[in-house]
């Protein structure tokens, strides 16, 4: 397993390299540059600025300069946020984004697993149908619709239940206070809860029909043990395969959610950077996102082998 993990890490290097190359040239193809603005700068000043950032050199040379710096983890200075390097900006935003994203994934798994299992155990009964109908809503309604609706309900109208004030802050991060996290995490997790619960329901129904679950029942085990010990572990396997895409979806979803809820994660650097042609900042964020997705995918694959002893990567 260890040597497999190492091989996978080494295998990720070319992937990352291709992502960097594509990202670099696609940013350059986009019209305009970081120092274009409505008011044209005097030519000498513009030339000096460009020279300072090596932008006067041919693109391929810039590419190799960038790669050279990257090789000792120098992501370069941000073109727009003066006096900040890209590394500083990312170090600032990444913990926030990571906390948001991982909380959303955790919530999606926890609720999705529970709901899916409950639906499967009550197959074709009213509980099953209602869970699946709600899940369908979760899948079809995009987060930029759920976010404003929840904002209206919990922020603007300020619901209260049994005299309990249920209003929640709808913007800002407040250093990761739980109250501030609730809405963005829910918005981010909602579609994934839906997908996960449908997935788990399907595989659970399948596993509950399997021969070894029949054996477990024939052994006279109580239902609780049959479900948790024999069925659940096999039923989550398809979910593990889905974790990779789910992580990618939550990370890209966080771009939108961070903007809507005004959260200081790296998502806003990505959108702002792309609009302002802040080449180094956008590339830096892309590399972080890519590395994040690759590592989490690898972890998902390793988890698969832990859950299913038949999967052995070293053979």
């Amino acid at each position: 397993m260890f040597s497999y993990a190492i091989r996978r890490f080494l295998g990720a290097i070319p992937t990352l390299f291709i992502i960097i190359t594509l990202g670099f040239f696609m940013m350059r193809i986009a019209p305009g540059g970081p120092f274009d603005s409505n008011r044209r700068l005097p030519p000498e000043i513009e030339h000096n600025i460009k020279a300072a950032y090596d932008l006067d050199k041919p693109v391929y040379q810039q590419y190799f300069i960038y790669l050279g710096k990257l090789s000792h983890l120098d992501f370069g200075p941000s073109f727009k946020n003066k006096d900040f390097t890209v590394s500083q900006l990312i170090a600032d935003g990444l913990p926030v984004s990571a906390e948001l994203g991982l909380s959303a994934i955790a919530l999606a798994l926890l609720l999705g697993l529970t709901l899916g299992t409950i639906a499967a155990l009550n197959q074709n009964r009213i509980t099953d149908h209602s869970v699946m109908t709600v899940a369908m809503f979760g899948i079809t309604i995009p987060n930029f619709v759920t976010a404003p609706i929840l904002t209206l309900i919990f922020g603007v109208y300020g619901v209260s239940l049994f005299g309990l004030d249920l209003s929640l802050p709808v913007g800002g991060w407040n250093n990761g206070a739980v109250r501030n996290m609730i809405l963005p995490v829910i918005v981010l997790a909602l579609p994934q809860i839906a997908v996960v619960s449908r997935l788990i329901r399907g595989s659970m129904v399948e596993v509950l029909r399997s021969n070894y679950v029949r054996t477990a029942r024939a052994k006279g085990l109580p239902n609780r043990l049959v479900v948790f010990r024999h069925a659940l572990r096999a039923a989550v396997l398809p979910l593990v395969s889905y974790l990779g895409p789910a992580i990618a979806a939550i990370l890209t979803g966080s771009l939108v959610v961070e903007t809507i809820f005004g959260i200081p994660g790296i998502g806003r650097y990505f959108t702002n950077g792309a609009l302002n042609r802040d080449y180094t900042l956008v590339l830096g964020v892309v590399i972080y996102y890519a590395a994040f997705i690759i590592v989490l995918n690898l972890l998902a694959d390793l988890l698969y082998a832990v859950l299913d002893p038949r999967v052995r990567y070293d053979q």
Partner: peptide
């Protein structure tokens, strides 16, 4: 469940699929 697996037990045709793989 007090009887199944204790005083009356069963074995099935295909032992690979009838045993829990994990």
């Amino acid at each position: 469940n007090k009887i199944r697996g204790s005083t009356i037990t069963m074995i099935f045709q295909d032992p690979l699929t009838s045993l829990t793989p994990h």
